[in-house]
Design a binder for these strands. Structure first.
Length: 656
RNA sequence: GCCGAUUUAGCUCAGGGGUAGAGCAACCGCCUUGUAAGCGGUAGGUCGUCAGUUCGAAUCUGACAAUCGGCACCA
């Protein structure tokens, strides 16, 4: 039977019978045949040697194709596994997939690997690449495969085969004498991988991702088409490290953390100035959007968290305080430090009788929360034990979910824009398998969220089954200056909490009704968001956020009196300004404040003091601008206005 | 919580069984300076904590803590 194969340019090739990707490439040209790495058949990446059994759309994959990286990385993972087994006999192999920018392979071995082993392993990998052993796909009988791997004492591989669905063929790839169970596809020989790879990290990982299982040793690596791409990637990692918020936080003296308060932040004056600039901005936005701000207690009797359900479900992650009774030391009262703000907000809602006319009631709080995060989970400002959420709960009717969600989307979009981000993507997490509530209310809530997203012009995808047990949610991701995505914003529909804590309102007919609660946050945690913000701007904040917006520097001490006058004018105009009258050369002062990423440096010497002017130098620029003092203060104060109060796009550029 | 690594001066880091070193910062002088490092000097550390081995531990061993890279977790 003949095959009709359609090429990407639309041309169709006919073959009399079975044909492999390599034969197809050869028929097109010799050059293509030698460049071919794999073939894409109806969108599925396949080995070059595998026969194409039906009419299909085909594409020959070469080193230039985007798919080449997948092939190179997966082959590199196999080469890593072979190298490790050659060097460390007795090591068991498990799985080795691709990840973003690279690959990993999980090994089982009693002795830990060390990064000192990396050069040796890389050397062996290069040797295997040089051997250029053909990679051949073999179809095996299931029992035979199990026997084969068990005989080699590869119990993880044997377990994988046992668990494969019965109808799935067992394929084993042989590269030279080394064999591994794999779905494929692979390139034709080990030489195709090339040597633009590097082993990067060593880590522990659970077998099959389950903490009940054995811990394996994972070796991470990266692989690219050529040395140039590899070097570019390594440089990119270095750049990301340079903007690490923990490093910048220290360099710019924004905050610190210490052993005695693990997971909590000591904000220094400059870090706190940044924090407050952000907090004040958020406060203006929610006020404008019709929220009321409240502030609720940190400590609650355990009975409230038992009623809300948190004590039982998340109790392990809560900080609990045992209080001994004065009269009876045997008697202990438990209180919990709040891990979230919802129970508190429901208490405020329940004060007095609420009418349908009060809805939607948007109750906001900069909620200070504590969660006892696992040691290994903590990470700078990104994951902490004490943090503040830009939290709010919207009490509304089921019918108001859509309009409130739409308003929230608009608020979030405008805030991300002001803060220099774009919405990268949105996910709608819908009903999970284990859930409460009627199908009808789920239908309604999911549709309301989907319609709100459409109304806001936001594209989204479905995060299937990942909603809470009581309602669906939206997850908003933003993209930072180096392309990373972070989930910050969230909106969650919750009819459960009002039920559990007995919140009611009186409807138009005088009946008691349950409101729905929308939990929502734009930034999520202010702490975490500031970490992201620091990395996004690499410490070079836009003027309105900069902890120190301007420094007045004297050239000689003749100008000191005048410099103080300049400082006073700037401060009076509302700028966060400082003065530097150290007996240092102006070069040294410029350098110091530039390294501190101060956006505005105002130099004053004898000339300026006499003429009542300032010489303005902007961060990153070399030009200086001579301005009259009064003019300068007014101009800079206007430039320093937050984006919601002043001129937008004031010319500040993000340094990529 | 799990696997591995790390912890030495304010910061970045070197060293290493006989009680500690550099650069920068700080402090004190001198220099009075024109847009990314002026010169000299001084001071600063129970070498993460607690045990153990040893004549002697910052160094070796163990436990604990924190941090880092992952994993698991993230209401």
């Amino acid at each position: 039977m003949s095959r009709l194969l359609t090429l990407p340019d639309g041309s169709v090739k006919e073959f009399p019978g079975s044909v492999t990707g390599l034969e197809l490439a050869t028929s097109i040209g010799k050059g293509l045949a030698s460049a071919a790495l794999a073939v894409k058949v109806d969108g599925e990446l396949r080995d070059l040697m595998r026969p194409i059994e039906k009419d299909a759309k085909v594409e020959i994959i070469t080193r230039k194709s985007p798919e080449a990286l997948e092939l190179i990385r997966h082959d590199a993972a196999h080469i890593l596994a072979e190298a490790v087994q050659e060097l460390f006999p007795g090591t068991q192999v498990t799985i080795g997939p691709n990840v973003e920018n690279g690959f990993y392979y999980d090994f089982a071995r009693d002795e830990p690997f060390s990064t000192d082993d990396f050069p040796k392993i890389e050397e062996k990998m290069r040797e295997i690449v040089k051997r250029d052993s053909p990679i051949v796909c073999e179809r095996w009988d299931r029992d035979e495969a199990i026997k084969f791997f068990e005989a080699k004492n590869e119990k993880y591989k044997a377990e994988l085969i046992r668990d494969l669905p019965a109808d799935q063929p067992i394929t084993v790839y042989a590269q030279g004498a080394w064999k591994d169970l794999c779905r494929g596809p692979h390139m034709a020989s080990t030489g195709k991988t090339g040597t633009a790879f590097k082993l990067l990290k060593l880590a522990g990982a659970y077998w099959r991702g389950d903490s009940k299982n054995a811990q394996l040793q994972r070796i991470y690596g990266t692989a690219w088409r050529d040395e140039k791409e590899l070097q570019a990637y390594l440089t990119q990692i270095e750049e990301a490290e340079k903007r690490d918020h923990r490093k910048i936080g220290k360099e710019l003296d924004l905050f610190h953390m210490q052993d005695e308060a693990a997971g909590s932040v000591f904000w220094h004056p400059k870090g706190w100035a940044l924090y407050r600039a952000l907090e004040n901005y958020v406060r203006r936005q929610i006020e404008r959007a019709g929220y009321v701000e409240v502030h609720t207690p940190q400590l609650y009797d355990s009975s409230l968290f038992k009623a809300s359900g948190h004590w039982d479900v998340y109790g392990d992650n809560m900080f609990k305080v045992a209080i001994k009774s004065e009269e009876n030391p045997e008697e202990i009262k438990w209180v919990g430090i709040k891990p979230m703000n919802c129970p508190g907000h429901v208490q405020v809602f329940k004060q007095g009788i609420k009418s349908y006319r009060d809805l939607p009631l948007r109750m906001a709080e900069f909620g200070n929360c504590h969660r006892n995060e696992a040691h290994g989970a903590m990470h700078g400002l990104i994951r902490v034990r004490q943090f503040v959420q830009d939290d709010a709960h919207i009490f509304c009717t089921e019918d108001q979910i859509q309009s409130e969600s739409l308003a929230f989307c608009a608020l979030l979009q405008s805030m991300y824009k002001d803060l220099g981000f774009e919405v990268a993507r949105v996910r709608l997490a819908d009903r999970p398998e284990k859930r409460i509530g009627t199908e009808e209310s789920w239908d309604k809530a999911e549709a309301a969220l989907a319609n709100a997203l459409k109304g806001a012009g936001l594209k989204y995808d479905i995060n299937k089954g990942d909603g809470a047990f009581y309602g669906p949610k939206l997850e908003f991701y933003l993209r930072d200056a180096i392309g990373r995505e972070w989930q910050c914003g969230t909106l969650q529909v919750d009819p459960n909490m009002p039920e559990r804590l007995d919140a009611v309102y009186i409807d138009e007919t005088g009946q008691k009704r349950r409101p729905v609660m929308l939990h929502r946050a734009v930034l999520g945690s202010l702490h975490r968001f500031l970490g992201i913000l620091i990395e996004h701007y690499a410490g070079k904040f836009p003027l309105w956020l900069a902890p120190v917006q301007a420094v007045v520097c004297t050239i000689t001490n003749d100008a000191e009196t005048y410099a103080k006058e300049v400082l006073a004018a700037l401060t009076a105009a509302g700028l966060r300004a400082q003065i530097d009258v150290r007996p240092e050369k102006i070069n040294a002062k410029i350098r110091d404040h530039s390294l501190q990423k101060v956006p505005l440096i105002l130099v004053v010497g004898k000339k300026e003091a006499e003429a009542k002017t300032v010489a303005l130098r902007r961060l990153g620029g070399e030009a200086q601008e001579i301005l009259n003092l009064g003019e300068a203060a007014a101009k800079l104060a206007e430039e320093a206005l937050p984006p919601d109060l002043g001129i937008r796009d004031s010319g500040f550029r993000i340094q990529k």
